[in-house]
Write a protein that binds this DNA or RNA. Structure first.
Lengths: 153, 153, 153, 153
DNA sequence: TTTT
DNA sequence: TTTT
């Protein structure tokens, strides 16, 4: 049956995106995103808890990430949870969970301080493949996961 | 039946929050939030479309908004849709739709807020009333809609 | 700047969809959705509060709604808030807020009881226009807002 | 900094909840949830892809799950991603990602639950601990993660 | 391991 | 009325 698998994150990148150019003109970017919550415990002390997320972007989106995102960038992310499983050499089941990014938006008006045209406000979003940008998108534009593959997104 | 009524917004304030102190030590803040999307139309021209939202915050949350938010502030908002209806003088049905904010987070500040004490990272979120902050919360902390009323949130 | 305007609803339809066939082979469906929350007030009494939402669907999505949804149907909806404004005859500003549906999913295994093949599990979701179904989608499939217009979604 | 870590799922349970009663009158429930998406691949063939999620509920919420949820139940879930990491006997880093449930709603029941007392509409949601139900909640009511611990939710 |  |  048709289900829903949706993730919404706001956080900061722990490192620059790692981008790989694959055969067939495909591109994938892997990013580490930290989401931190701060709260008071029962003693009234302030506690911070950080969760790290493995993000995966494909195609034009990966290239935008490479161009505009870097360590410390604050982004809004929408995506879905994907867990890969396999057996390791000891025959044990192993799992790795990632967030497949469907759209993202750069946050903060001046990600890198004023006067930095190379790191502009940037965002991506679901767009039909037919209208995918043929070149790197301008700043302040919605760009999306436009992979022309069999994947539902 | 138990339903879901959830709104997620990222945008900028069009003006400073309007805060009213009501009898019974209650506080309400009204804010106007712009969410803008940019896309290319079928002619490849860049088009911007802005939607304006009326936000409503109560109690401690309203006071935090008054203290930390101002015209231009970029925030992440989570809330629910509420539509009031009434009859005007002509006997016509009138409607007004607002977003009741359940939590919000200031965006765009430095991750550690260093060197900018006047606009610190700030955020609010659902917290049990019993652990509500008795004073304005510190920067970079989760604060929430903690109204001790009959409302479900 | 690129913003986020997202609505997530789970509720029941208050009436059958109202579908209009427009010129240019366009179709629009309007639906009324109730989201109800139940909670206990400070006297421990159970209180129910229902919010009504005006939903708007276009194109293939509207046709699916017409075919599969009816009064009482429980659906999951994802969309964005849109507020139209105009001046009425008295020169007063009037507003109407609707939810532009981007995807929806029928909930409940047997919306109409077992043995009712005409009201199957059904769901819609963002899909590139190029892969839009050319006929009404089968049950249990993702279908989406595939309008080939200038709109970003 | 204050971030956002939010998961929204709609799916079916692969098995009955596994509930453990811990010392200190604490309860935890573990559930497996399947979210399935169906789409057409580039050959026009219908493809189904199922993702499995490990859900974790605590306290009153866990008891409600035990009482009302079972294999096959369709639920709406809201929560956050948590990844535990440790070193295994071979000294390798191991990870396990789960969804900490903050609220959930049973789907597919009749809006008024009439005539089905054994599987009523049921739902949970964030509520201040002070107003937590002391006994199992009635059908069609919002119930929530009301753990009185140091965790922010 | 669910659902249709 | 915001933002870039």
């Amino acid at each position: 049956m048709a289900g829903v698998n949706k993730v919404i994150l706001v956080g900061n990148l722990g490192a620059d995106p790692e981008v790989k150019y694959l055969e067939g003109d495909n591109t994938v970017a892997n990013l580490r995103l930290a989401t931190t919550e701060a709260y008071k415990n029962r003693n009234g002390e302030r506690v911070e808890q950080t969760e790290w997320h493995d993000l995966e972007m494909w195609g034009a989106q990966a290239k935008i990430a490479e161009q505009y995102l870097k360590k410390g960038s604050q982004i809004y992310v929408e995506g879905k949870i994907k867990t890969d499983s396999w057996q390791d050499e000891q025959g044990q089941n192993r799992y790795r969970t990632r967030i497949r990014v469907l759209s993202f938006t750069m946050l903060g008006s001046k990600p890198d301080g004023a006067g930095n045209p190379s790191a502009p406000q940037q965002s991506t979003q679901q767009r039909p493949a037919s209208s995918a940008p043929t070149s790197a998108p301008k700043a302040q534009e919605m760009v999306s996961d436009t992979e022309d593959d069999d994947l539902p997104f």
